[in-house]
């Protein structure tokens, strides 16, 4: 007989309160997670969307890529040795549109590669968000350090860096603006062994992201909030089930007296926990997915299926641990005590 279900049916209000709290906490976690992911895309989408591989910068740069200048001779050696390698640079800057309105962008230039947009001199390829801001293909944009004009050749999706739109320019134009044709970084897509080059430090994708201090601190704060919410939800489960179990000590004792196994009592509690969590999570996932679709275009929000599944599993696990810890008292319930305590 499914006692767990019968109890939930009879005590709807009690279980709905618990369910609604789990729902609110999980929805909040999904939303913050979506925001964290969205912000991380805004902050380093350019890097995050690259395939797994190794980033190289000079050791003298001390893990600050903006200080790195790869010697042209070394760059040539690496690019000739590693076919898929790309040398590239990222610099923050400004673009002026036809109305003289200035927009912050991240200029990116790279040697010929599959990973980065290659553009000719005088051309520029921008992140899609610039199109949403009113810039069209064929528009001419200027920069204070650039004599000529950049003609917009196209747009790419989700290409952001340091909360600014990425603007792909040619190496010649980059040299004109920043006065150097030395690249900051070299990227080699994963191909089994990790090659080493003298005077160059190598970083995996995640390691490289962690060298970007603004990205690291931003993500650290948001991740701390997410895990704090996960821990709170675990504690909520433990407290709620503890209170429910305390109320049912007498009942558990009587059930034990008539021969109900302790494991069956745990199964009742676990069934209720899984049922409440699954329902609460389903509603939270449904609403967060709706939000993903209706969120304003400029809002940095990205909640992937992978993140949702991961968080849901964590919620189920933490709910299970919380309920089980609080349920340990079931094990110590003595039937005799319950009988002597009076009516349940």
């Amino acid at each position: 007989m499914n006692i767990a279900w019968k109890e939930m049916k009879k005590s709807k209000a009690k279980f709905m309160i618990l369910g609604s709290i789990v729902f609110l906490v999980s929805l909040l976690t999904f939303m913050i997670s979506g925001l964290a992911n969205g912000l991380s895309q805004e902050s380093a989408g350019l890097i995050k969307d690259l395939p797994a591989g190794q980033f190289y910068m000079t050791k003298e740069a001390d893990q600050t890529y903006s200080m790195s200048r790869v010697d042209r001779r070394i760059q040539k050696q690496i690019l000739s040795k590693e076919k898929d390698a790309t040398a590239f640079s990222i610099q923050m800057g400004f673009l002026n549109d036809g109305d003289g309105k200035q927009q912050s962008v991240a200029f990116v230039t790279a040697t010929s590669s599959k990973q980065f947009k290659n553009v000719e001199k005088g051309e520029i390829v921008l992140d899609k968000s610039m199109e949403d801001n009113g810039i069209k293909i064929g528009d001419a944009l200027t920069n204070n350090q650039y004599k000529g004009k950049f003609v917009v050749k196209g747009f790419v999706k989700h290409s952001k860096y340091s909360h600014a739109s990425v603007a792909y320019i040619s190496m010649e134009d980059y040299k004109e603006i920043y006065g150097t044709d030395e690249m900051q970084l070299i990227f080699i897509p994963e191909g089994g062994t990790v090659p080493t080059f003298s005077g160059m430090g190598s970083f995996s994708n995640q390691q490289f992201l962690n060298t970007i201090s603004s990205y690291k601190s931003e993500q650290m704060s948001l991740n701390m909030i997410i895990w704090f919410l996960v821990v709170i939800s675990g504690m909520l489960f433990a407290i709620f089930f503890y209170m429910m179990n305390v109320q049912k000590i007498g009942l558990y004792g009587i059930l034990k007296a008539i021969g109900v196994k302790t494991s069956s009592l745990f199964k009742i509690m676990w069934t209720q926990m899984v049922f409440i969590t699954v329902i609460a999570l389903s509603i939270a996932i449904f609403l967060s997915q709706i939000f993903t679709r209706v969120a304003p275009t400029g809002m940095p929000f990205s909640l992937t299926t992978e993140t949702t599944v991961q968080l849901s599993i964590v919620f189920l696990m933490i709910g299970f641990i919380g309920a089980t810890l609080s349920g340990l008292q079931i094990k110590s319930v003595q039937p005799l005590q319950a009988i002597q305590q009076g009516e349940v």
């Binding site: 006692i3 019968k6 109890e7 009879k10 005590s11 007498g250 059930l255 009076g342 009516e343 349940v344």
Partner: peptide
């Protein structure tokens, strides 16, 4: 078993 109080399960 029959106890001093009925000790029935309240939700059944």
């Amino acid at each position: 078993f029959v106890f001093q109080f009925a000790h029935l399960v309240p939700f059944l």
